[in-house]
């Protein structure tokens, strides 16, 4: 396999990718259709909200804070070359809200949530728990997939909003403590510059990335092969796919929202 010519490799990869995309799309629509039809498993939904939302807060907060701070330093250093140091508040704000907030939260969710969903469902598959669910007249798509995907669609935008705020705060702390900005005017500049459409685009991206992250975890978990190796493969593939799809979706959404 490894010794195939690069062209053959590429061809196979593209064909495999297209087939997977088709299957994932069918899977996503199936999951969606199960969200809309009863029964709805509230307990699983609330557990997923807790797992995806609340328990992701620390990692989201830390990531956003440090990124906002680093962003402020970079913009200050770069801006100094054109004597444009003053734009730090504005650029940190749109940088975080439009791009970095959603993308970083999306990637952290892919690392934290996609992997754990995939590993959990794959283990259930390998240990016949999915078969057991079916024989107990419970549809795995309803019981496992729908609550997780719905929870991610709702809670990841909230995480992104929080990440945006903490990222801006990180920039503010660095700006005021280290770069000598005036606290009140930093905040005013940030608030004046951000528009509602920026914030909406951020939250919409959050919902899209959350949906992608949870769907990939469920899909690859359900597709898992046998044994511990199957679980490992499923987990790896799910995180890989979620990360790439989130970045691709980000590019598409950014071009839709901002290239006019």
């Amino acid at each position: 396999m490894i010794l195939l010519s690069p062209l053959q490799h590429l061809g196979r990869a593209v064909l495999g990718l297209l087939a997977t995309i088709g299957q994932v799309a069918i899977f996503a629509f199936d999951g969606l259709s199960h969200m809309l039809r009863p029964p709805f498993y509230w307990r699983e939904f609330l557990a997923a909200l807790l797992q995806i939302g609340w328990l992701s807060l620390p990692v989201v907060g830390l990531t956003a804070f440090f990124t906002g701070g680093a962003l402020a330093l970079q913009i200050y250093a770069g801006g100094a070359r054109f004597s444009a140091e003053a734009v730090v508040p504005q650029i940190v704000a749109i940088g975080m809200v439009r791009e970095l907030g959603p993308v970083l939260v999306g990637l952290m969710i892919a690392a934290r949530v996609t992997s754990s969903i995939a590993a959990e469902i794959a283990t259930m598959k390998v240990t016949e728990q999915i078969d057991a669910l079916v024989t107990l007249s419970t549809h795995p798509m309803k019981y496992l997939t729908a609550p997780r995907v719905l929870a991610a669609l709702i809670v990841v935008p909230i995480l992104v909003g929080i990440g945006d705020i903490i990222g801006i705060f990180g920039g503010y702390v660095v700006g005021v403590q280290q770069l000598g900005f005036n606290s009140a005017s930093y905040l005013k500049n940030t608030a004046d510059f951000l528009e509602l459409s920026d914030i909406l685009s951020s939250l919409i991206k959050g919902a899209a990335f959350g949906g992608i992250a949870a769907t990939m975890g469920c899909y690859f978990g359900m597709q898992s092969g046998r044994g511990a190796q199957g679980v490992g493969q499923a987990t790896k593939a799910s995180v890989q796919a979620a990360a790439v799809l989130i970045l691709a979706a980000n590019f598409i959404l950014t071009s839709v929202f901002f290239s006019s």
Binding site: E128, Q129, D131, L133, T135
Partner: peptide, 20 residues
Amino acid sequence: ERDAFLARFGMLFQGGALFD
């Protein structure tokens, strides 16, 4: 019809297959 069909069955899986 799957639901009605499966409601008639009970199954013990080889590995137990308990929901952990």
